[in-house]
Structure formats: C-alpha cells, structure tokens
Write a protein that binds this DNA or RNA. Structure first.
Lengths: 365, 365
DNA sequence: CTCACGTGCTAAATCGTTTTAGCGCATTTC
DNA sequence: GAAATGCGCTAAAACGATTTAGCACGTGAG
C-alpha cells in the first residue's frame, strides 16, 4: 500500500495538475504558472525557486491541461479544414501541405469532407467547426457566400467575399500554357471538361480557357464541352469518384461523334478516367487523341502514358493557406481579404502529341 | 445606438453564454442547463418554464461552449488519427472511412502524419495527440510497443500489445489468392517487394507470402526480394514518394539480371511505379512481366494496364476502427485487445497474364 | 399543531488554468 | 523617522459549462 508512488491521494494514473505541484512545492498555483510560462512577472522570483519549480515539473511530468488553457485563453490552437473529399488525391496533397505548416507551428487541425453536398449541409460543416471552437478555417475548393465569422482562407475559390483571404492559381496563364502547347502540336478542335458545378474552380478556369482559346484561334465548341456531373445532376458525391467520372464523360464525349483531336480535362483524375475510356474504345493516346490534365497529382508522372498537365503547386498552396490563416489569427491583420496568386507550370509528358491528320478519328478502332 | 440588437452589454458578436440566458430569463444557469440537457432532474420543472427556456435558447442562437463542456466532462469527443502520410492514396482512403463513421457519431478527429519517422518522433506524435486531450486514437500502419494510455485501435498493425484493438487483413488468404493466381498463369519465379521497414504490415505480409509460396511450390528467391527503402536506409520520408519508390526498386530489380516472370509488389503504388520502370526498360506488362499489387486503391482500376491486385476494404477498415474505438470509449469494454480480421479479395485485371516462355526476358527490348 | 413530502427552483463546487491587483515585510532615500 | 521602493509571493476572479445538495414554500396527513 505505502509502496505506491508519490502523490498517494490520486492513485490513478491521472496527469498531475498545477495544484498537485503547488502542494508539493508549498507554493501557489499562480507562482508556478508564472514561472513555467516565463511570464515577465516571474522576473521577480529568485532563480532558486524557479529551478525548484522546473525540477518538480520535470519530475512529475507535468503538462498543462490543454482544455483548461483553451478555456482561459479563448484559443484552441486548431484550424478547421474543409475539403470536398479527403481521399481525392488532389485534396490530399493540399491537406498534406496545410498539415506540414500547421504542425510545425504547434497547431492542429480538424478535417471534414463536405462531399460536395448542398449549400445547406455546407453550413452544417462550418457550424460544426465553429462549435468545436477552431481559431480559423481553411476551405478547399469550397465557395462561401457570406463573410466568415473567423479568420478564413479559401484555396481555389473565386468569389471575392469581404474578410476572406484567397489562394488561387493564375488561371489565365494556365489556360494559355496548355492551349499554346496544344496549338503548337497542331490541335485546332479541342474538347473540354468543365469542373463539377459545386467546385469553385470551375467558372474561373472555364472562362480563362475560353478566352485563351479565342485569342489563340482555337475552337472549343459547345458540343465538345462537358460539365462533369452537371448534366446527370444528382447531388450525391460518391467518395473518390473522380476517375470514374472522367471515364463516364470520356465515353459520353465519344458518343457525341464530333471530331476532336485533343481533350483538355478539368483535372488529372478526369484526364486519366477519359484516357481509359478512349483506350476501351480502341483509341490510342496520344496518337489518336491528346489529353492534357490539370494539377499534376502524384500519379500523373507514373501513369501510362505519362500525363501532360498544368501543374498546380498543391502542397505549396496548402502551406501558404496555413501561413496566411495563422497570420490573420495572430494579428498581422494586413492579409485580410488578400489574394495570393500562385503560378502554374506546364509539364509536358507523353499524353500529348502532334494532332493526327484530319478526318481519321471516327472509328479508328 | 439604441437600435442595436438585444443584449446591449456585450455588443460584439460573441456567442451568448448560459449566463446571458439566465439573466434574460431570470432563472439560474443551473436550471437552464438542466432543461437544455433533458436531465432527469428537470422533470420537476413545469412545462411552461421549459418552453420559455427552449424558446430563449433558440432566439439567442445559444450553443454550449465546447471547451467548457469538455473541461467539465473530461471528454473532447475527438479522436487522434495517426497515419504515415495523408497524401498517400492508401492512407487517404482509410482516413475517409474513419471520417465517415466519426462524423456521423458526432466526433471529430485530429489528423497527423508521422512521415515514417523514428520511434522517438513517433512518441512525440502520440504525445501531441494526448496533450490535445483526444478521447482515443486510431493508428494506421503504425507500430506501438507499449500499452496505450487511451483506447486505441491499430489498423494494419501486427504486434499483439495489451489493451490494443486491431483491424487487420487476413494476410495468409491474401497471399494464397495472389500466388495461386500467378501459379495458374504459369509463373514460377516471382519477384517480391517487401514493405518499408517502418510499415507494420511488412513482416506479416512477407511471412504469409513466403509460406504460401512454399506450399504452392513457387520460388521467391532472396535475390528477387527487395525491401522498399530498407537498403538505402535513410529515414526521411518524402511525402508521397510511394510511386517513386516503386519505380526505383523496379529498376533495381532489373539491374539484378535475375530472371523472373512476375512481380508481387508490396502495394498498388509500388506496383505502378515498377510498371513504369519496366516500360522505360522496354518491357511490356503483362506480356513480359506480370505485376500484381495490393490494396486496390482507386487508381488501380484506371491505370494502364488496369492493375490486378489483392483488394483490402480500406474504407471499411477505417469505419470498423472508428466503430471499435468509440465502443471502447463508451464503455462496451469487450472489444479490448480484440482482433477484427477482414477478408481480402483478388481482383483480376490486365496487369497479370500467362507467363512468357522461358528465357526470353533479358533484353526483351 | 407538527411532520413529511412534493414542487420549483438555486447556491456553490468543480473542471485546470491564467493573470491582475496587492499584501507584508525589508531596505533605501532624504 | 517617514515615505518610497523592491521583493517574493498569493488570493481570487475569471473562462463557461455541469451537477449535487438543499432551500423555501405549500399542502396534506396524522
């Protein structure tokens, strides 16, 4: 019985509290807290006492209770992160970037996926994070229509909303890079996948692409423009359906029986799905159809054919968003409502090639 | 000035507290808390008062402060989730499964990646989560060597540690399925990628595969067995290096100049990387080499060639782990130290085919 | 008339910190 | 000798909820 460790009263393996230390050292909790936090007030406390405090804290393995600290300080050192779907490789890379910056800054994050649900459910997600008392939020490819209550950064949003910081790619440059590349290869009639209606990149990117096409005199006819999952129109977003969707729309595109020599997909996932659909229809990529993606997710360099794509620095964008949201939380108010624009980069690999001679595509099988 | 909303004192948009409600209703905070939480004690409180309380709560948009509740109740309704790397598609699918169950149960989760760091740093990760006062933990492919302090579930661990629940695949069945398939196709000399030394699946899976090979009379010679990143030996884990590693080891395998007709990769990512290495060396898959993966991550069905693989129900495993950890937290103590074994499934696609005739591989280019 | 019980609440402790105001004593300053 | 200053600390009030013990009043029973 008496062979028990010290602190006989609370025999269970509960972590020691300030009060425990205080009793043991015969000091008040105030003193200990002051010393441990290196408060300026503690300057008046003699070195010897301070050492006693530190020694006891070490001996007892004292760790301040995070919840109590949060209650007092009204900060949780946590950020809410909302993505369309965690298992989407595109989102996962952004999250990885967010994570690396946050953890290095002693913040944690709560992750939730809205699965591209209705605006109403989106509000529930925000509400959830707010209730959990996050200090700020990062929204990935998610539109917000009113000013946020907390410091918030949107990655790949496009609406200018008051009080919202943004991290976006330069869509105009991206469009020009991709289309100039295709034009140089001789492509003139190009099919286009627009993004899902719920995805906030959709509008900006499409607009930029059509503008660039016009200025480069490249045709992107409406009959060759498909809106991913827009036309089927149901709201349920099966997790990880990105490739599947590209596949379905690749088939749909072929079904239109309108000639094209290249496809500018909305992202790498839909590009890869479409390539599979083309293969299954007996078409070769890039010999019969060139395909260019967007994002440069990890698989792009290993797919077969290796995917030509417009690279977004996803991890970097995540890191930037994390940095900005922390800046806003910690008072450098300047970044309010700012736009950080990152540069895309054209990565030419094997899924694009010279346009085949005219009129040989239909039933190349 | 007087046109301000009600609650004139705290003019800022702070959320109302119980005290605010109490003042407004001229009741004590105790009463309101009792009513709002449908405490049995509140049975004595007349219907009319209760209605007043509910009405006021609704009108003020009252939400209990999560931090305060947590401090009092000593629960945070949050789970710590530790994965090797968020952006690994394999981990991301598991996380997606975990998430769907947790959010549906009104729990949130803190996600951290250990990036396959040293055991020492792993302790830091656990320490971080513990400090953040999670109610339980889910460890993905991460070995724990001592009994955990909190309810903990490991996915794809293999050590039997007291107090730890486990969700694992039936490795023996998995090995038999894969090797029987290869044998049927005529493969007799098979190369093998073992997992990274830090990955807890490595040992069990290798053992199962060698056992199955022996019983099926298939040769897996040491010269054809490579341990991913084990031999290079550095500890730093570049985010998302999974494909890259498969590529490097695919090259390494070819460099050994030992004949083989099939590769059993450690996972789909390393399979895809190796396929690319084979292509780059002028080999065709499956005509020259068959490749079988493990996991069935989303890309597997869309890769070219479509990947034959041993499917793990990743999302399901995540959901199970979440369910088990919540059960343990909420007192159904039975699941302590349990093993949940899930079944693998062989998915035959296009990356495996009949073994080519003997002695034609070397420099098939 | 006294006691018991039911009704409708509330006071106060508690969770574990942080932080401000200030106490009691000793020493220095003029 | 009085006033000021410095030293080394602490009391106590927050932060915002939950929960136990019990108060005050009214009614009915014996």
């Amino acid at each position: 019985m008496s062979t028990r460790k010290k602190r006989s009263k609370k025999s269970r393996s509960e972590r020691p509290t300030l009060k425990d230390l205080a009793e043991h050292l015969d000091l008040s909790t105030a003193t200990i807290s002051l010393v441990l936090n290196h408060s300026p007030v503690a300057a008046a406390i003699p070195e010897e006492t301070q050492q006693r405090v530190f020694a006891a804290a070490r001996e007892f393995g004292y760790r301040p209770n995070y919840i109590a600290v949060s209650l007092r300080s009204r900060r949780t050192n946590s950020i809410g992160v909302l993505v369309p779907e965690v298992s989407d490789p595109w989102a996962a890379e952004i999250v990885s970037g967010i994570e690396s910056h946050l953890l290095a800054s002693d913040y944690t994050y709560l992750l939730t996926s809205h699965r591209r649900s209705t605006p109403k459910l989106l509000r529930d997600d925000l509400e959830l994070l707010t209730r959990r008392a996050v200090d700020g939020m990062i929204l990935v490819a998610t539109e917000l229509h009113e000013p946020p209550l907390l410091p918030t950064v949107v990655i790949s949003g496009h609406k200018r909303v008051k009080g919202l910081s943004n991290v976006v790619i330069d869509h105009d440059l991206a469009a020009r890079l991709a289309l100039a590349h295709l034009k140089e290869l001789g492509h003139r009639r190009i099919a286009l996948f627009r993004g899902q209606p719920g995805s906030s990149d959709t509008e900006d990117r499409s607009r930029a692409i059509l503008a660039a096409a016009a200025s480069l005199k490249i045709e992107i006819p409406p009959k060759l423009t498909l809106q991913l999952s827009g036309e089927e129109g149901d709201e349920v977003f099966a997790p990880n359906a990105a490739y599947q969707e590209g596949y379905a729309f690749g088939q749909k595109l072929l079904g239109r029986r309108v000639d094209f020599t290249a496809l500018f997909a909305f992202d790498d996932a839909s590009a890869i799905g479409a390539i599979r659909a083309f293969f299954d229809a007996g078409l070769r990529v890039p010999e019969d159809v060139s395909v260019i993606g967007f994002d440069d997710i990890q698989i792009a360099a290993f797919h077969n054919p290796r995917l030509t794509t417009v690279r977004q620095p996803l991890r970097e964008m995540g890191r930037i968003a994390a940095r900005v949201v922390l800046e806003r939380i910690n008072g450098s108010e300047r970044s309010d409502g700012s736009f950080v624009v990152v540069e895309p980069e054209l990565i030419v690999r094997d899924s694009t090639g010279p346009a085949r001679g005219r009129e040989s595509k239909k039933d190349a099988r």
